[in-house]
Every structure is written in structure tokens, then in C-alpha cells.
């Protein structure tokens, strides 16, 4: 099976589809936060772009099985989350970083990540090593014993990423993961994303198009709960040819697609 082959980028061939949605909607009263999203995503880093209120966070929450969809179909990691057993199996293999990371201020970094490792059913005898590795991957090993209340915003974001990857997830959902990270950390983080994306599906929601350009093999652009563009970063860049809004080629492509969709 060939997944989402569009444009002139080298095709990604994979027989694995980790995220598959059909006509997915999520309504809050009368507002359609997600309004009929069709996705088929295999391993690799998938970027989710869109203006504020486009529905990115709601879509990620639905994919994280936190919110049930109002309608439509959804299969994650080959299982449907509609039934208890499927949902549990998906969650065991899922990593999720919400847009706003809540945390227990009196936990240490290690305790917080270990807490999630255990909740994600990482076997207790392997949990300690998995936690240490996750903390090391986000470059927080020197602060492992620090209380979360003592950390900066960027460090807390990295703690959030560590808890998301502690179970070596096959599906990683990251909502604004680079918010609060300094440029050096962002570069390291993109490298981490690419590494994880070699064997897992990583969906990154972000406003920072440079993250998409640097780390994502594919990208979707959401507006008003719908996917208005899906393709490679190169394809998105090409949509901006001749468009004047935006400082970088990818930004121009982003702005051009939005302008066209709004028109």
C-alpha cells in the first residue's frame, strides 16, 4: 500500500497505516471543531499546521482517545478505540503531549516520567531504564532529581516530551511541542522527532513552519476543522510560488493555501 503519495517528492512506501480516519467529526454543541477529516498516516513525522481555532488540538485529542469523535471512523495502530480492549491497547502504544502540560509541581522529573511509564504499563522492571533514557533524550538528565516547580517553561516542555516518549510509542501526538524551547533545543528536538519517526508515526501540531520544514515528511493544513491541504513540505512550499505574504518559502505556501481556502 502506498500512503499519501502526492507531488514530486520521493514516495514513502509503507504497508503500515497507523492512523486512519474517515469523515471524522467532533462537535462541541453547534461548533464543529473537527469537520470531516480523512487521514491515512504511516510511520514518519507528520506535521499539522493551521491558524488558531482550526481544530488541530481537538483532532489530536480525538486521536489520543481523550475525546470520543462525534461521528466518523477511526483506526489507530490497527485497532479501533471504540471498544475498551482496543482503546487500552492503543493507549499502551501511544505517546501524547497536550498543548497545555499540566504537572504535579512537587514531583521530581524522574518521578513524573516514571509515573507515566507505569501508567502506560511499561513493565516495572524496565521502567527505570526507560525513564532514564527518555530523560536523557530530552537532555534533562542533569535535572532528573529536580522538582518540577523549579524548572523553566522550556524544561517543563521537555519533561512533557519525555513522558510522551517513555514507552517508545508507535504513535506519538505532540501538540505545540516546541513552544518555549530555545533555538538550540528546537534543533535537538527536531532531530529527536526524525529519530522517532523512523519507526513510529509522529503527528506534530505546530505554528512554527520551520519545524515542519525541518522535521516532517508530510504535512496537513487545517482550517475550520477541515484538512485543506495535505502533502509534503515541498508541495506546500510550491503552493506559495508568486505569493507575497510570508518571509520564508514554506510560510508563503502556508499563507497561499489558507488564502485560497478562505476564498
Amino acid at each position: 500500500m502506498v500512503v499519501n503519495i502526492k507531488g514530486d517528492e520521493p514516495p514513502e512506501t509503507s504497508t503500515v497505516v497507523n492512523v486512519e480516519t474517515g469523515g471524522l467529526t467532533r462537535r462541541f454543541r453547534r461548533a464543529h471543531a473537527v469537520a470531516g477529516v480523512d487521514l491515512r498516516i504511516g510511520p514518519g513525522v507528520f506535521g499539522l499546521l493551521g491558524p488558531n481555532g482550526a481544530g488541530k488540538t481537538t483532532l489530536l485529542r480525538v486521536l489520543a482517545t481523550v475525546l470520543p469523535p462525534t461521528s466518523g471512523s477511526m483506526r489507530l495502530l490497527g485497532r479501533t478505540p471504540a471498544d475498551q480492549a482496543g482503546r487500552r491497547e492503543i493507549r499502551r502504544r501511544l505517546g501524547y503531549l497536550p498543548q497545555t502540560l499540566g504537572y504535579y509541581a512537587n514531583f521530581t522529573v524522574f518521578e513524573f516520567v516514571e509515573y507515566f511509564a507505569l501508567l502506560k504499563e511499561v513493565p516495572a522492571d524496565r521502567a527505570q531504564k526507560a525513564v532514564a533514557r527518555a530523560i536523557e533524550r530530552v537532555r534533562l538528565d542533569d535535572r532528573a532529581r529536580a522538582k518540577l516547580r523549579t524548572l523553566s517553561g522550556g524544561m517543563l516542555r521537555r519533561v512533557g516530551i519525555a513522558q510522551a516518549i517513555v514507552n517508545d510509542p508507535e504513535l506519538l501526538l505532540l501538540d505545540e511541542p516546541t513552544a518555549g524551547l530555545d533555538p538550540e533545543q528546537r534543533v535537538e528536538f527536531r532531530s529527536l522527532l526524525r529519530e522517532i519517526g523512523e519507526r513510529s508515526t509522529v503527528i506534530v501540531s505546530t505554528h512554527l513552519v520551520e519545524d515542519i520544514g525541518a522535521a516532517c515528511a508530510r504535512v496537513a493544513l487545517m482550517l475550520d476543522g477541515r484538512i485543506v491541504f495535505e502533502g509534503t513540505p515541498g508541495e506546500l512550499t510550491s503552493r506559495g510560488t508568486g505569493f507575497e505574504i510570508g518571509d520564508a518559502p514554506l510560510e508563503r505556501g502556508y499563507a497561499a493555501v489558507l488564502a485560497k481556502a478562505r476564498a
Partner: peptide, 15 residues
Amino acid sequence: EHRRGMADLLASTPT
């Protein structure tokens, strides 16, 4: 969980 805004994150775990 509610006070610390952890509900979503915890709901995404199998426990």
C-alpha cells in the same frame, strides 16, 4: 488531576 490540568494527559494512558 483536575486542578493541575492533568486530565487529558492521564486519560491518554491505559490505566
